[in-house]
Design a protein around this nucleic acid. Sequence first.
DNA 1: CCTAATCTAGAATGAGATTCTAGTAAAACG
DNA 2: CGTTTTACTAGAATCTCATTCTAGATTAGG
Lengths: 203, 203
Amino acid sequence: MGSRKTVMRAGTRARRQSILSAALDCFTRFGLASTTVEDICRESGASIGSLYHHFGSKEGVASGVFIDGIQRLNADLVKKLKRRKSAEAGVRLVVTQYCDWVTKHPDLARFLLHSRDIAFPDAARAELKRIHRDYIVEVFSWFAPFVTAGDMKRLPPDTYVPIISGPIQDYTRNWLAGQSQSSPVEVKGIFADAAWAAMRTVR
Amino acid sequence: MGSRKTVMRAGTRARRQSILSAALDCFTRFGLASTTVEDICRESGASIGSLYHHFGSKEGVASGVFIDGIQRLNADLVKKLKRRKSAEAGVRLVVTQYCDWVTKHPDLARFLLHSRDIAFPDAARAELKRIHRDYIVEVFSWFAPFVTAGDMKRLPPDTYVPIISGPIQDYTRNWLAGQSQSSPVEVKGIFADAAWAAMRTVR
DNA sequence: CCTAATCTAGAATGAGATTCTAGTAAAACG
DNA sequence: CGTTTTACTAGAATCTCATTCTAGATTAGG
């Protein structure tokens, strides 16, 4: 994870990365619970000692994959959000961009959506909290002016993300689990409509 | 789970129930991954052999808790839904009743929200599928007339549940994890508004 | 009664996560 | 350059459980 106090050697980044991508591969094929540390070592070419040196535990590896993924997802959204000019365009973007991202990275998305509840190590929990806070600050400061201007409802801060993103995430989880026919891309307009209907002010 | 082919003896129901409630207790205190089968045996007074006789595996116990909980949640909703008379009242009820239920059964709700992704045994998966199908049929047949009458939007079937229930479930998950201040009961009006705004037709 | 099925018990097994010890290689420092 | 410190690799040994197995107890049916 980007925040290492100590120096990181040349080959180290590559080794860490090979472990992370082997892990995602195994999680996708066998499921988190059924992949063994040995599986990840075999796939990545790392030794047990090396894996434990870098990640501390199997769940440490999982949290590495998770943090990596969430950072990419967040970064992609923030970048695009800055090009929008209206509250409606912003709200719709949050929904549609999520659909596009999930379609482009289905394995990673499946892992992110199904691993929310892993008992991550404390260090990882702390870093995730920091990442989430930074993300929320950035997104909220983009939306804030529109709330002030009366384009969007003024609600308790904690309720915006569930209302805007909750439905599409729920749908996507079902879809990735094979329980919905239409791909998120096909229904993204419907969810964008729903999100905007819930957020817009009537004047 | 209500569907046993063979006869069930007198003390058996009590034994199963004691295992289930001990399990929920342990899951709440230690988390699913960290509770051992021995923990559940100690708490419930059952022997290892007895637990395996009744549930087959640790995940079998978890699926028992899950199925029990989801059935109670579903039944409570369906019962109340039948007393409503308008689409708006129905949609609002789905949201507010969920908040009330979660507040009344926080441990069970936490488990239901955080165990969606357990690798349940095949038998349990099948039963859950059946339970969910029955539930969906019942709820949809209640709402169908209002869609036909034009009171609610006509959407792809798979999208109704995420749009109506997704936000409040997401908020509740955060709250149960200690990441939101206001209890669901305090914000249920906001989520009911959002759900109805997303479902209503404008005419 | 008796006998077949359900249920209880807990010791034995085995899979696999984690720890430990020993070493290799790269940087830091003189 | 040595040398010393620190990052890193390796894999055998350990230890924690989930699960299996065998034996016996209890209950229902005939």
